Amino acid sequence: MRFDVDKLDPAKAAVVVVDVQNDYCHPDGACARRGEDVSAAKEMLPRLQALLAGARAHGVPVVFVRTAHEKATDSAALTVRSGGRSGVVCRAGTWGAEFFEVAPLPDEPVVAKHRYSGFVNTRLDSVLRTLKAETLVMAGVSTNVCVESTARHGYMLDYHIAFMGDCCAAFTEAEHEAALVNIDKYFGSVMKADELLGVWDTAQFG
């Protein structure tokens, strides 16, 4: 679905970076150690870094969302998922929970989440409303899990969704592509980073 350029106004947008963390992306992280292919995360990082640089240059707020599992939020439903493997990923305060090859600037908000959607029992909506964001520029990992869950939730909270397909990664190409089809059909518009940056560089916003 094509995106209305007016909705990409830097004054009304925010970039939301989801779960770009060692346990999900690093070859020594928990997901790689259990056999998941994390190579797509490494491959997309230059495009994500370019997106962040462009957003910052145009004054678009960047919000980092990261998983932080801890005993206080380890429900039975969470800890039994994937045979208990999900509960050991991104434990709060560990190396695995640290950001992977991206990092927030000192004034950029960081939101800790405990479930797939970055909106569930977090301050993300309050942060975005305070920033007066109307459009969420979505990026991160995994495309079909936490990025898609956060984007879908955001859409249902009445945000416009610009989903950066080439700034997301999943453990398989099939999962990645299926998520992009689903988002583009029902929840937002799938775009590429250079397409969005081109709009920010050339479009005239009122």
Rank of each mutant, 00 (worst) to 15 (best):
residue 61 P to H: 02
residue 43 E to P: 00
residue 53 A to Q: 04
residue 75 S to L: 06
residue 80 V to N: 01
residue 28 D to H: 12
residue 40 A to D: 10
residue 105 L to Y: 03
residue 34 R to F: 12
residue 102 V to S: 07
residue 112 A to H: 07
residue 66 R to S: 08
residue 83 G to I: 09
residue 34 R to T: 09
residue 23 D to A: 05
residue 23 D to E: 11
residue 19 D to T: 01
residue 29 G to W: 12
residue 72 A to W: 06
residue 43 E to Q: 09
residue 108 E to M: 01
residue 95 W to L: 08
residue 115 R to C: 05
residue 26 H to R: 10
residue 18 V to N: 01
residue 96 G to N: 06
residue 90 C to L: 00
residue 62 V to A: 05
residue 54 G to K: 04
residue 42 K to I: 15
residue 41 A to T: 06
residue 45 L to A: 05
residue 24 Y to I: 13
residue 67 T to L: 13
residue 53 A to D: 13
residue 61 P to L: 01
residue 95 W to Y: 15
residue 13 A to T: 12
residue 23 D to H: 05
residue 55 A to W: 01
residue 14 A to C: 10
residue 110 V to P: 00
residue 93 G to A: 10
residue 54 G to Y: 03
residue 14 A to P: 03
residue 31 C to I: 01
residue 107 D to C: 00
residue 92 A to K: 15
residue 23 D to T: 00
residue 68 A to R: 11
residue 24 Y to L: 10
residue 40 A to H: 15
residue 73 T to Q: 12
residue 116 Y to W: 12
residue 89 V to T: 12
residue 85 R to K: 13
residue 80 V to Y: 02
residue 102 V to K: 09
residue 98 E to G: 14
residue 25 C to S: 11
residue 69 H to E: 04
residue 63 V to F: 04
residue 28 D to K: 15
residue 77 A to W: 11
residue 78 L to V: 12
residue 94 T to Q: 08
residue 12 K to C: 03
residue 88 V to E: 11
residue 71 K to H: 10
residue 50 A to W: 02
residue 74 D to A: 15
residue 74 D to L: 14
residue 54 G to M: 09
residue 102 V to G: 09
residue 21 Q to K: 10
residue 65 V to R: 02
residue 82 S to Y: 14
residue 44 M to I: 15
residue 23 D to C: 06
residue 46 P to G: 09
residue 98 E to C: 03
residue 95 W to T: 14
residue 16 V to R: 02
residue 104 P to G: 01
residue 17 V to T: 15
residue 99 F to S: 14
residue 67 T to C: 02
residue 115 R to D: 00
residue 15 V to W: 03
residue 67 T to M: 04
residue 30 A to N: 08
residue 21 Q to F: 06
residue 86 S to Y: 09
residue 54 G to V: 04
residue 113 K to Y: 13
residue 16 V to F: 04
residue 57 A to F: 05
residue 88 V to H: 14
residue 45 L to V: 08
residue 50 A to H: 10
residue 78 L to W: 08
residue 36 E to Q: 14
residue 112 A to I: 04
residue 86 S to D: 13
residue 113 K to F: 13
residue 73 T to V: 10
residue 27 P to R: 13
residue 69 H to C: 01
residue 105 L to I: 00
residue 28 D to N: 12
residue 18 V to P: 07
residue 28 D to C: 02
residue 37 D to Y: 01
residue 43 E to H: 15
